[in-house]
Simulated assay, not measured.
Amino acid sequence: MKTIKIGVILATIATGYVTPLPATAGAIERACLASGRSGASRPLCGCIQQVADATLSGSEQRRAAKFFKDPQKAQDTRQSDNRSHETFWKRYKAFGNSAAAYCG
């Protein structure tokens, strides 16, 4: 199912058509906009949210959103020996690569 969603994202890129953002922002978009980073904009953060919606579950998105405010949490998760942290990190890393390709 995730492969199909990624395919839809890639098809969207190829056609140049981007669907409008929903009225309510997701956890990733809100965290991105609140991050204070100079490159954070509504279109970019919305794009990243679209990739998150296609690649991460809701709970994974909420967990990843915390990394914007506290990057040390990302580092702790990446270095953890906990199997669930490792599984999440692999999915998060794939999300990051997809977001960079789609939104970058």
Score class of each variant (00 low, 15 high):
residue 2 K to S: 12
residue 2 K to A: 11
residue 2 K to M: 13
residue 2 K to Q: 14
residue 2 K to R: 13
residue 2 K to T: 05
residue 3 T to K: 09
residue 4 I to Q: 08
residue 7 G to P: 06
residue 7 G to L: 10
residue 8 V to M: 10
residue 8 V to W: 09
residue 10 L to G: 12
residue 11 A to C: 10
residue 12 T to N: 13
residue 12 T to C: 06
residue 13 I to P: 00
residue 13 I to W: 04
residue 14 A to Y: 02
residue 14 A to R: 04
residue 15 T to G: 10
residue 15 T to I: 12
residue 15 T to E: 04
residue 16 G to L: 07
residue 17 Y to Q: 13
residue 18 V to P: 00
residue 18 V to G: 00
residue 18 V to S: 07
residue 19 T to R: 14
residue 22 P to L: 15
residue 24 T to L: 03
residue 25 A to N: 07
residue 25 A to Q: 09
residue 26 G to C: 01
residue 27 A to W: 03
residue 28 I to P: 13
residue 29 E to L: 01
residue 29 E to T: 02
residue 29 E to M: 08
residue 30 R to Y: 04
residue 30 R to H: 03
residue 31 A to S: 09
residue 31 A to V: 12
residue 31 A to E: 03
residue 31 A to N: 01
residue 32 C to D: 00
residue 33 L to G: 01
residue 33 L to A: 05
residue 33 L to R: 02
residue 34 A to N: 12
residue 34 A to K: 08
residue 34 A to R: 15
residue 34 A to F: 14
residue 36 G to V: 11
residue 37 R to P: 01
residue 39 G to H: 08
residue 39 G to M: 09
residue 41 S to E: 13
residue 43 P to R: 11
residue 44 L to S: 08
residue 45 C to Y: 10
residue 46 G to W: 02
residue 47 C to W: 07
residue 47 C to D: 05
residue 47 C to N: 09
residue 47 C to M: 11
residue 48 I to A: 05
residue 48 I to T: 04
residue 48 I to W: 10
residue 49 Q to P: 15
residue 49 Q to R: 10
residue 50 Q to A: 08
residue 50 Q to G: 06
residue 50 Q to M: 08
residue 51 V to M: 02
residue 51 V to G: 04
residue 52 A to Q: 00
residue 52 A to V: 04
residue 53 D to A: 04
residue 53 D to C: 00
residue 53 D to N: 11
residue 53 D to V: 05
residue 56 L to E: 09
residue 56 L to D: 06
residue 57 S to F: 01
residue 58 G to H: 13
residue 58 G to N: 13
residue 60 E to D: 11
residue 61 Q to G: 00
residue 61 Q to L: 07
residue 61 Q to P: 05
residue 62 R to Y: 03
residue 64 A to M: 05
residue 65 A to D: 12
residue 66 K to W: 09
residue 66 K to A: 11
residue 66 K to C: 06
residue 67 F to L: 10
residue 68 F to T: 11
residue 68 F to D: 07
residue 68 F to E: 04
residue 69 K to Y: 09
residue 69 K to S: 15
residue 70 D to M: 09
residue 70 D to K: 14
residue 70 D to V: 08
residue 70 D to T: 15
residue 71 P to H: 15
residue 71 P to N: 14
residue 72 Q to N: 14
residue 72 Q to F: 13
residue 74 A to P: 07
residue 74 A to H: 11
residue 74 A to M: 15
residue 75 Q to E: 14
residue 75 Q to P: 14
residue 77 T to Q: 12
residue 77 T to F: 07
residue 77 T to S: 06
residue 79 Q to A: 10
residue 79 Q to G: 03
residue 79 Q to I: 12
residue 79 Q to F: 12
residue 80 S to Q: 02
residue 80 S to F: 09
residue 80 S to D: 03
residue 81 D to E: 01
residue 81 D to P: 05
residue 81 D to V: 05
residue 82 N to M: 06
residue 82 N to D: 14
residue 83 R to N: 06
residue 84 S to V: 06
residue 84 S to T: 02
residue 85 H to C: 11
residue 85 H to T: 09
residue 85 H to F: 06
residue 85 H to S: 15
residue 87 T to W: 01
residue 87 T to E: 09
residue 88 F to M: 10
residue 89 W to K: 10
residue 90 K to A: 10
residue 90 K to Y: 08
residue 92 Y to R: 13
residue 93 K to D: 15
residue 93 K to S: 13
residue 95 F to V: 06
residue 95 F to A: 13
residue 97 N to K: 12
residue 99 A to M: 05
residue 100 A to G: 08
residue 100 A to N: 09
residue 100 A to Q: 01
residue 101 A to P: 03
residue 102 Y to N: 00
residue 104 G to T: 00
